[in-house]
């Protein structure tokens, strides 16, 4: 299981624990990740608001770099849903339009690069749920997360518009993984609802409403797990503002999926950088203490 790895900008900054836990978990599961040399920003949600061509050229630059890496034939693993969609969009669009690929390549030539259309971009959840699979997590299980109730939060852009590995409206790919970790499922219908993405930066009132509804529905769970740095930040960083607006407490532990699964296969909270999360409650850590390591 060899992959090229595109961390994206957030994973170097506000989402460093997502980077650390992804690498630690994947390596422990026997996967091999090689970072794409010289990668640059995919444009996030900003390029689309500014220029159509830039929205395609910024991710295409990274696909061209990935394509040039030897040995060829490795899928590109992407943990951030926004980066994933930006890279994936270029693959999908250039596959059906060679005219578009030529246009992109005309721009890339300014950087001495060219994209042939031979890459395959995969979201982390796709790789974990289908390449590794719940059975492998169960085989590596060292610390069953017994009694911990988890709400799986998928967000939007790993599911839509390209339905690659899960149902885009009622996703379930995390459920077998949570079960394999020995944890309980918090049943809810908010898993594929939008967290507001960058609204928190430009239209906070609107963002708080969306996040508030998700945190409200998570009540009763011990943790929400995410697979995107923007979802994670929205759910973990504004809990106080949401509480002030709605008048109800909504304190909730928010973890990245590889952190949860990493704990279950016996990686330490330090290795998974739980210290960097903005919302891990004392109650959660106490429950974690009570899960016995079987080893």
């Amino acid at each position: 299981m060899k992959y090229l790895y595109y961390p994206g900008c957030s994973l170097e900054g506000t989402a460093r624990e997502y980077d650390s836990s992804t690498r630690a978990f994947m390596t422990a599961m026997g996967a091999d990740l090689t970072e794409i040399e010289g990668w640059t920003c995919c444009g996030a949600s900003a390029a689309e608001a500014v220029s159509e061509l830039l929205t395609l050229v910024l991710p295409a630059r990274n696909l061209a770099l990935a394509e040039a890496m030897k040995p060829s034939g490795r899928d590109i693993l992407v943990p951030c849903s926004a980066c994933y969609l930006n890279l994936k969009r270029v693959e999908e669009k250039t596959r059906v339009s060679h005219a578009l690929r030529d246009r992109i390549n005309e721009a890339l030539a300014a950087d001495g690069l060219a994209y042939q259309g031979r890459t395959r971009t995969r979201h982390l959840l796709d790789v974990v749920s289908r390449d590794l699979g719940a059975a492998a997590v169960a085989r590596h299980l060292v610390r069953p997360l017994t009694g911990i109730r988890v709400a799986p939060y998928y967000g939007c852009q790993c599911l839509r518009p390209y339905a690659v590995f899960d149902d885009p409206e009622s996703p379930r790919s995390m459920e077998p993984l949570i079960a394999a970790a020995g944890a309980d499922l918090h049943p809810w219908t908010m898993g594929a609802k939008c967290c507001g993405a960058s609204h928190m930066n430009t239209k906070m009132e609107v963002g708080l409403k969306l996040v508030g509804a998700i945190l409200e529905a998570a009540r009763g769970a011990d943790a929400v797990v995410t697979v995107c740095p923007m979802c994670q930040m929205n759910l973990e960083a504004y809990q106080r503002q949401v509480a002030r607006q709605s008048g109800t407490d909504c304190t909730m532990t928010i973890l990245y999926l590889p952190q949860l699964l990493g704990l279950a296969i016996g990686l330490s909270p330090e290795a998974l950088r739980l210290d960097l999360n903005l919302a891990v409650t004392g109650a959660f850590l106490e429950k974690l203490q009570h899960t016995a390591t079987a080893a």
């Binding site: 949600s45 689309e48 608001a49 500014v50 220029s51 159509e52 929205t55 939007c156 852009q157 839509r160 518009p161 885009p168 409206e169 939008c194 507001g196 993405a197 960058s198 609204h199 239209k203 609107v206 969306l210």
Partner: peptide, 27 residues
Amino acid sequence: LCSACYMCTLRCPRGLPLTEAIGRLKQ
């Protein structure tokens, strides 16, 4: 106010690229 959740694009019965069209409006 579109946060690019792609729900309308997924569900539009005419299969229109609505989120992308909104991106064009932003541009």
